[in-house]
């Protein structure tokens, strides 16, 4: 499904990172491991089409990601890739349900109200649908951002350090949630982390 070949990126300051080739099949679940600052985020940004690599190619479903136009890439990202950030970035002026709808609107997809409610229910936060981000706890916010990443039925779910700001219990819940949701929604999963707690949950690892 995803094929990364002879990829390397040169930072503005001149530091160069070479990424090993990587092949991810449909519904695979991978850990992206490495110490802070070794290029995990950079690789994730490259895979999500946010950062053009200096060299190499990345094929998602046989589409060469960086051959798309800027607009085409935005659209591709919106429809095929769900991203969960280290911090749950929600739009503060919109309530939880609106934040989910926003994902559909921004990707120019139809709004599926039923599915959004179902997602919230699966993640155990259906009671928070009308709440605003400022009223939620970190754990709740993280769940909402998982739900948002799943709104457009992505083929690939990317999570960047999803557990780093959570305690053991919440971290375990989030990992559990990510793996099951990815499976239930038929999406491949990449979790980038340096968190040892995550390692026991996922077998395949890609080391930087």
């Amino acid at each position: 499904m995803i094929n990364i070949r002879s990829l390397s990126h040169v930072y503005e300051k001149g530091r160069k990172i070479k990424f090993p080739d990587w092949r991810i099949e449909d519904m695979d679940q991978w850990l992206l491991l490495g110490a802070s600052g070794c290029g995990k985020s950079t690789l994730l940004h490259i895979i999500s089409g946010l950062l053009k690599p200096t060299q190499g190619e990345i094929l998602i479903n046989d589409t060469d990601l960086y051959s798309l136009s800027a607009r085409g890439m935005d659209r591709f990202r919106g429809r095929h890739i769900g991203i969960i950030f280290q911090r749950p970035h929600l739009i503060r002026s919109l309530n939880v349900l609106d934040n989910l709808e926003l994902a559909a609107v921004m990707a120019a997809m139809p709004i599926d109200h039923e599915r959004n409610l179902l997602l919230l229910k699966d993640l155990g936060i259906e009671a928070l649908a009308k709440r605003y981000p400022d009223e939620l706890s970190q754990g709740q916010l993280q769940r909402v951002s998982v739900a948002r990443a799943l709104v457009n039925k992505p083929d690939l779910l990317i999570a960047d350090e999803p557990t780093s700001s959570l305690d053991d219990e919440n971290a375990a819940q989030v990992i559990e949630m990510l793996t099951t949701q990815a499976k239930d929604n038929g999406a491949a999963l990449i979790i980038a982390t340096h968190d040892q707690r995550v390692r026991e949950h996922i077998a395949k690892t890609y080391l930087l």
């Binding site: 999500s48 946010l50 800027a70 607009r71 935005d74 659209r75 591709f76 990202r77 919106g78 429809r79 991203i83 970035h89 929600l90 739009i91 503060r92 926003l102 994902a103 921004m106 990707a107 120019a108 948002r148 457009n152």
Partner: peptide, 16 residues
């Protein structure tokens, strides 16, 4: 900028 970056991630184009 933050909100807008998120919207970009969610698939919104610059012109939007």
């Amino acid at each position: 900028k933050y909100d807008l970056a998120i919207m970009r991630c969610l698939g919104a184009s610059r012109s939007k």
